[in-house]
Every structure is written in C-alpha cells, then in structure tokens.
Design a protein around this nucleic acid. Structure first.
Lengths: 188, 188
DNA sequence: CCATAAGTTTACTGATCAGTAGTGTTTATT
DNA sequence: AATAAACACTACTGATCAGTAAACTTATGG
C-alpha cells in the first residue's frame, strides 16, 4: 500500500471510529467508506485492534500538536497560555463534528487496564499533564502538580459536559473556574 | 416474569453493561450470566435497547440516591455537603469495580443526540446539576449556577481521570480545587 | 385440583462480525 | 516493454449478533 493510501485509511478510520464508536464500526463499513478493499486493509493492519491503535496514535499526535500550538497563539505568557487552553477547547467544542474525547471513549469501550487501547488512552492524558505541569512551573506556581491537575480536571469535565449537553458553554465555565484556581496559585 | 426475576435481570444487565460496555455485551452473554433464558428476557424487554434503558434508569436512581445521601451524611451545612461530594466520589473511585460513569460511557457508545440512551444520559447530568445548584443557593452563593457548574466540571473531570489513571487521587485534587471555588464564591 | 401465567429448552432466522484465499487488475519502476 | 509490487474483487470461513417459534415444565392463585 502506498503511504498515501495507508494514511487515507488511518485518517478515515479515525473519523469513523470517533463518530460511530469502535465496536459499532465494522471493518466492512470502513472498506465501504474508504473504497479500500478489506484485503488491502489487512495487508497493513494484522487486526482491527492494530488499526484502532494506529488511529489513536495519529489522534494523539494531532490533538496535542493542535492544542499546544493554539495555546501558544492565544496566550503570550505561560499563565496566559494556561487560560487560553479553555479558549482553544471552546473552539473545539463548537466544531460540528465534536463528539467528546476520543480517548475517554476508547477507554470506555476497552476498559481492561492491560489492553493496549486503554494504555494508549492513559498515555495521552499523561502527556497532556506533563506539558501543562511544565507551563505551571514556568508560570511560577509553588505546587505546579496541584495546579496542573486542577486545570486538567476542569478540562476533562468541560469535554464530557460539552458532549452531554452539546453546547460549548462548559468551556466558558471552565475558563472562569481556571482563573480562580490560577489566582489562588499565583496571586491575582 | 416475577418482579424479582425481572429485577435480577436488570441488575445483572446493569453490572455487565457497566463492566463490559454495551455493544460488547450480547444478549446471549446476559442470558448465560443470569441463567434467565433469552426467550424470557424478550418477554419483558422488546429489544436490547429497552433493556439498556431499564438499566440506565435503575442506575440513575441508585446513583443519585447514594450520592445525595452520602453528601448529607458527610456534611452538616449545604456548603459542607458540596465539599463532601468529593469525599463521596473518593469512596466510589476506591471501589474495586469502579469503571467511570455509566452515562459518560453510554453517551460515548450511542452519540446520536436523538437516541433515547443519549437523552437519558443527558437527563442524568441535568438532574445532578439541579440538586447541586439548589445546594449552592442554600449555601448563599450569589451566582449558584456558576458555582454549581464549576463544581460539576471538577466532578466529571475527577471521574474520567480516576478511570484513566485507575486511582482515587483525583477526588483529592478535585476537593482541593472545589474549596478554592467555594471560597471565591462564598468567602472563606 | 385445576387453570393460568411465568419460565425454560432447543432450534432456528438472516445479518453481521473479524479475518482469509485466490485470482485478477492497476501502477510505478526499470 | 517487462517486471513486480500494490491494490481490488468475489467468495468464503466460523463465530456471534439481535430476535423468534414452538413445545415443554414449573409455580402460583382461586
């Protein structure tokens, strides 16, 4: 499979898994959606799980790249970037295909803690934490871990709530709460 | 089906759906787990979706009853009860069968906003909000809606994070952040 | 004790699941 | 133009999916 074809498959798989769920999406449906034959798919991904893992890896890269870049664009200082995370989230929630976090959903469908899919989801959240904690340190927090964990609780809560109410307002609420946490940690 | 048998089925379905996921759990597996024949199951639930809905309704009742009672036991004043929500969550996260929130998972597997399963999940969150907002009002908050939404963001974030890291510490982090939000809304 | 309802067993439907075999067709490289 | 890899097509496997039919057994209430 030419790299382009392979990428096309992974990108489409990512989209369909995200919109439809993992168990609910069959390989036949993916073959129909992409126009790529089942045989070709199985040439490059030994199992459905392998394809799911490839999609999750792509998503992990894409999402972190997008979020961190957007935070840097919207905020000049580390502190401003931490707040800008919630402006970026608001943009995400307002996108018409928004359906919560891919990794929250993946760990919901594959809840066994030894499952590679669960582990990848867990890793994604850890990578986000590492970055936010570094920003909290740069912002001068005395306890950057505590601050980062508090902000990320607001982030995860906003994602789940935006999905279940299908509006983007939770980002606004989370931003307001984040400002209070930041003021408490860094002084106003 | 005698009510006891019917309840037995719904309770077992609730447990297995929660642990295993919805699409991943077949009706045959439920029949095997409960010892109740498939025919009998379909006598009382026309479809799998009907059974899922019954399980979700039971969960909604049980969870809200448990949470609100535990908050009342652990907190004397409305303000103390709001903080006690996170102590109750910590107990929940530490239970060995804990696997995130049933309704977050349900809405992940049935993301269509017109699906009854999605709607029930949405309703559950709304009922929680109503109760927390009332407590915030009783606690004397100027903007009880804002306070309630902030606290619930922390709650949802803690649930998701506790699941993806499989430990109960997020409850502690959420409680610390909640105290800050409460102090900002009500004065320390 | 009898009638009725509740529940069981077995076997089935047609659809879909993940994954594979074998054969043909396109495409890029040389 | 020749060759080889990448790809598609059709058809298949055995398992499992949701849901049903028909006959049998058990328990309950009058």
């Amino acid at each position: 499979m030419r790299p382009s074809k392979r990428n096309e498959l992974v990108e489409k798989a990512l989209e369909v898994f995200y919109q439809n769920g993992f168990h609910a999406t069959g390989m036949d449906m993916l073959a129909a959606e992409t126009g790529i034959s089942k045989t070709s798919m199985y040439k490059h991904f030994r199992t459905k799980e392998d394809l799911i893992m490839a999609a999750l890896c792509l998503r992990d890269e894409e999402f972190r790249t997008w979020l961190f870049r957007r935070m840097a664009q919207l905020g000049a200082t580390p502190r401003a970037q931490l707040i800008a995370m919630f402006d970026a989230l608001k943009e995400w929630f307002a996108q018409k295909g928004f359906r919560s976090c891919m990794f929250i959903k993946a760990s919901g469908e594959y809840p066994d803690p030894s499952d590679p899919i669960y582990l990848k989801s867990s890793e994604h959240k850890r990578l986000l934490f590492d970055y936010i904690r570094d920003l909290a340190t740069q912002a001068g927090a005395e306890k950057p871990d505590i601050l980062a964990r508090g902000l990320l609780l607001l982030k995860e809560g906003a994602i789940v709530t935006a999905h279940l109410r299908h509006d983007e307002n939770p980002a606004k609420d989370a931003k307001a709460a984040a400002k209070i946490l930041l003021a408490a940690a860094l002084g106003s």
